[in-house]
Design a protein around this nucleic acid. Structure first.
Length: 254
DNA sequence: ATGGCTTATTGTATAAGA
């Protein structure tokens, strides 16, 4: 079983890349973030023609999350239970008996902004909700754009970025609290080349110079840990014309 | 270089992303 996550930065613009990627990679599940589409504008038909079911929770301009799957998505839920949020950042479903939680974490903007406070509150709410979800779903996958680089090696310039948003101590502590729930950062289960990143700024030729961060992640519950076979970042779509600034991250389960 | 792109908006400048 192949699972993937990809922040597409507007599905309207990136649909051709997504369809090509589905066709050439044939994942069982592809989770998308930042579709930036209202539900009635979601391209259900074009994706169905590629052989995929879709469930989506979106809004105009910002946010928006979707789960694309070969098998139908069951028991679809939206958002975080007991956390009121008009921003469409979480969609969950059961696919092939695995609970899939697709999440677009807030960016936070900067550590001294109200958006950073919201980010930390949002993450805490997700954590508390997942601690309960894990009791009902032993095989759970949390994947998406976390907007957190967990360690210094997940940032091209940890000295220059020290204490900035995406790498701050509080965000990294929050990431570790997901791990304390038993969730495993599957990318690090496998040998990886140094300077492996999933996002590169559009500016400054950042991709060409590999000035990136690893902020997109696939975490699995303990029950799935021993089923993991490979994890990698697919940089190919980032090389295309008009790319998303994020690359897909892939996990292969047995 | 307190933003060098990119996207979306009842747009022609602004907000947001990361």
């Amino acid at each position: 079983m192949k699972l993937a996550t990809w922040n597409v930065n507007s599905l309207n613009v990136r649909l051709p890349h997504v369809l090509d990627w589905l066709t050439s990679n044939k994942p069982d599940v592809l989770c998308l973030q930042e579709t930036k589409l209202e539900d009635f504008k979601f391209p259900y038909e074009a994706i169905a023609e590629a052989g995929y079911h879709s469930v989506h929770s979106g809004q105009k301009t910002y946010n928006g999350v979707a789960i694309l799957s070969l098998a139908p998505a069951e028991d679809v839920t939206f958002g975080i239970t007991n956390f009121i949020d008009h921003q469409k950042r979480v969609i969950s479903a059961t696919v092939d008996s695995k609970r899939i939680v697709c999440a677009y974490f807030p960016n936070g903007q900067s550590v001294d902004s109200d958006k950073y406070i919201y980010k930390l509150r949002w993450i805490q709410a997700l954590h508390d909700w997942l601690s309960k979800e894990l009791k009902n779903h032993s095989e759970l996958v949390l994947l998406g754009d976390f907007n957190i680089a967990p360690e210094d090696k997940d940032c091209y310039d940890p000295v220059g970025w020290k204490d900035q948003v995406l790498v701050s101590q509080q965000e990294r502590k929050a990431f570790k609290e997901f791990e304390a729930l038993g969730l495993v950062d599957t990318f690090r289960l496998f040998e990886q080349t140094d300077s492996s990143f999933s996002w590169w700024d559009y500016r400054m030729g950042a991709f060409r110079r590999n000035m990136g961060l690893r902020i997109d992640h696939i975490l699995v519950s303990q029950a799935l840990k021993n089923s993991c076979r490979a994890s990698y970042i697919d940089k190919e779509p980032r090389k295309l014309e008009r790319p998303s600034d994020h690359a897909p991250v892939v996990l292969e389960l047995e």
